[in-house]
């Protein structure tokens, strides 16, 4: 009869063993190039900001509308472009180069929703599309709204509205 436990060594849950192993793991962990990543994100994020500002100015100048109205149009354009590039399949390649610079602005928000529904469109309109569109973006919306309320109350308390 084969004895499954013959050579079994009870190392599970041993704190010393875990710490010892952790040092080996950390020793072989490659260094992420954080400075370069941050610099790339700063540059791409800045470029998006500059592009957005340019769009806003252009809309306001050519369409003869107020800066506020132009801002709405600018945001819509950026969202549209992010969704389009996601659907065409090359936004993720941009994000690999540009790092978080493309994910943090509103382009990343649109991208997260668009990529989620691309994955789940085969599951149908209710269980796929509807249930999963906010898979990644849902937390952002929830805590964004909650944070807005809290800061609104603080502002009201301090500045009286």
């Amino acid at each position: 009869m084969y004895n499954f436990k013959k050579t079994f060594q009870p190392i599970n849950g041993d704190k010393m063993e875990q710490q010892n192993y952790e040092t080996i793991v950390n020793k072989h962990k490659p260094k992420e190039n954080r400075l370069l990543n941050a610099l790339l994100a700063f540059l791409t994020g800045g470029l998006i900001g500059a592009f957005g500002n340019f769009l806003q100015e252009a809309y306001s100048y050519f369409l003869d509308i107020s800066k506020n109205d132009a801002a709405v149009l600018m945001l819509t354009t950026l969202i549209f472009l992010a969704c389009l590039f996601t659907a065409l399949g090359f936004f993720d390649s941009f994000a690999k180069v540009g790092k978080m610079g493309l994910i943090i602005p509103i382009t990343g928000f649109a991208h997260s929703m668009q990529s989620a529904i691309l994955d789940y469109k085969k599951e149908g309109l209710i269980y796929g599309f509807g249930a999963n569109i906010f898979r990644l973006a849902g937390s952002v919306i929830l805590y964004g709204v909650v944070a807005a309320y809290i800061f609104g109350i603080i502002r009201y308390a301090i500045m009286g509205g």
């Binding site: 962990k29 490659p30 992420e32 990543n37 996601t86 659907a87 399949g89 936004f91 993720d92 390649s93 941009f94 994000a95 690999k96 790092k99 978080m100 493309l102 994910i103 991208h111 997260s112 668009q114 990529s115 989620a116 691309l118 994955d119 898979r135 990644l136």
Partner: peptide, 16 residues
């Protein structure tokens, strides 16, 4: 799709 983020979602991955 099952274990990580949606396929087209482009969040940067660590080297490991």
């Amino acid at each position: 799709k099952q274990f990580r983020n949606p396929v087209e979602y482009g969040s940067p991955k660590p080297k490991t």
